[in-house]
């Protein structure tokens, strides 16, 4: 923001994160439908049996995204300094491919026939999932932070 004559200069923190903010603008998924966050619950405090040594496996968030017939339930787990996601996509999800969107990168994985998927070893930060299904437009979830 430019300083106006006669106004107080902005504090140094006011423009923090400008380059990260600029990097966020990308028009690749403009044609996709958006699955909105419709549910958020406090997960029960539990330690995953699959938690490896040094990982605490505590569930930190339970989120639900919905768009028309598609529902995606996600559980975010802590794996020490990293995060893991387990999810269930319900709706028509045969041969669906999931793209994991992170700022500046994207990974893909196939959703199981029962609609389940898991992601582990995720660095903390913003994330969004994009689901591509046969005969349906791509659906992207709202961005959320893990």
């Amino acid at each position: 923001m430019r300083d106006q004559p006669g106004t107080d200069p902005l504090p140094p923190w006011a423009l923090e994160g400008r380059s990260a903010a600029l990097a966020a603008f990308d028009r690749c998924d403009d044609g996709s439908d958006v699955a909105r966050l419709t549910g958020e619950a406090e997960p029960a405090t539990e330690v995953l049996r699959s938690a490896e040594d040094g990982a605490d496996g505590v569930a930190v968030a339970v989120l639900r995204f919905e768009h028309e017939d598609l529902t995606m339930d996600l559980q975010v787990h802590s794996e020490g300094r990293l995060r893991a996601l387990s999810g269930l996509a319900t709706g028509e999800c045969e041969h669906a491919v999931l793209h994991v969107r992170r700022p500046g990168s994207s990974d893909r994985l196939r959703v199981g026939e029962d609609g389940r998927f898991t992601l582990s070893g995720l660095a903390r930060g913003p994330i969004s999932l994009s689901l591509r299904r046969m005969g349906h437009p791509t659906v992207v979830t709202d961005w959320f932070t893990i």
């Binding site: 990260a20 903010a21 966020a24 603008f25």
Partner: peptide
């Protein structure tokens, strides 16, 4: 770090909802 992640998430959300 949490604040930076949150702020970046806000801009990513804006980018997604801009159209």
């Amino acid at each position: 770090p949490d604040r930076e992640d949150a702020v970046q998430t806000v801009w990513l959300t804006l980018n997604q909802h801009l159209p």
